[in-house]
Amino acid sequence: MRYITEIVVNLPREKFIEKLDNPENMKHWQSGLVDYEFLSEPANEEGSRMGLRYKMGKREFEMVETIIKKNLPSELHTIYDTKGVQNIQKNYFKEEGTSTRWISESEFKFSGFGMKLMGFLMPGAFKKQSLKYMKDFKAFAEDGTSVLHT
């Protein structure tokens, strides 16, 4: 399953990247994020891995982020692996005056019958979640609004 989401954040690209590239900020725009841990050194660089723990309702899950291309300020490509799902994400950041256009290309690969069925029956849920994270990042970057206070 593939789709593209995009949003314009009213922040110059340099400031946008500063906020996006800081792992400490993830808790402010990724609902459900409980903790993260660097799994390789150097951290936050091309080829590095980070473990992420989430809790959504009563459901807890972990995933591993691998940075496959880091060419900031223009692009950042990552792979997220969790049980039954791999998400390949290609993010592009375009300067538009004093704003930044964030274009995200997502590709999901499912393994196991249950996850394949979920991907088939609920493709809109994945896109909706991706767009929610983008909107929450926009609110955090522009206004300092954190999902921790909602």
Rank of each mutant, 00 (worst) to 15 (best):
M115A: 02
D143H: 02
P123N: 11
A141S: 07
G144A: 11
G112C: 13
K135T: 08
M118P: 01
S130L: 08
D136C: 14
F120T: 10
K19E: 01
N22W: 05
T5D: 04
V64E: 10
L76P: 11
V9C: 06
N71G: 14
D21I: 04
D143W: 12
F137T: 05
L117W: 03
Y36C: 04
E60C: 08
L20W: 15
Q30D: 02
E37D: 00
L39Q: 00
S146C: 05
V147C: 10
F113Y: 05
E14A: 07
F120V: 03
R49D: 03
K15I: 07
K15S: 02
M118V: 10
E45A: 07
L33S: 05
M134N: 02
Q89P: 07
M26S: 07
G144T: 03
F126L: 08
M115S: 09
S40R: 14
K19S: 03
S31A: 12
K55P: 01
L33I: 08
F61Y: 11
I68N: 07
G51K: 15
K90T: 10
Q86L: 10
I88S: 13
E37K: 04
L131G: 00
Y54W: 11
N91Q: 09
S74R: 15
N22T: 11
F38I: 03
Q129W: 05
S74D: 15
F120K: 13
P123E: 07
F137A: 01
L148G: 08
K19R: 10
V34E: 09
K69I: 04
R59I: 02
G84M: 09
L39F: 03
R59M: 14
L148Y: 12
G84V: 12
E96N: 08
N25W: 11
I7M: 13
N87I: 04
T98S: 12
K83T: 14
K135Y: 10
Q89A: 08
G124T: 04
K109W: 03
S99A: 00
L117H: 00
S106R: 13
E75F: 08
T82D: 03
E60S: 11
F137M: 11
P123D: 04
R2I: 01
L72R: 14
M118I: 15
P123A: 07
N71H: 13
K127P: 14
K58C: 04
D35C: 09
K55R: 12
L52P: 11
F108P: 05
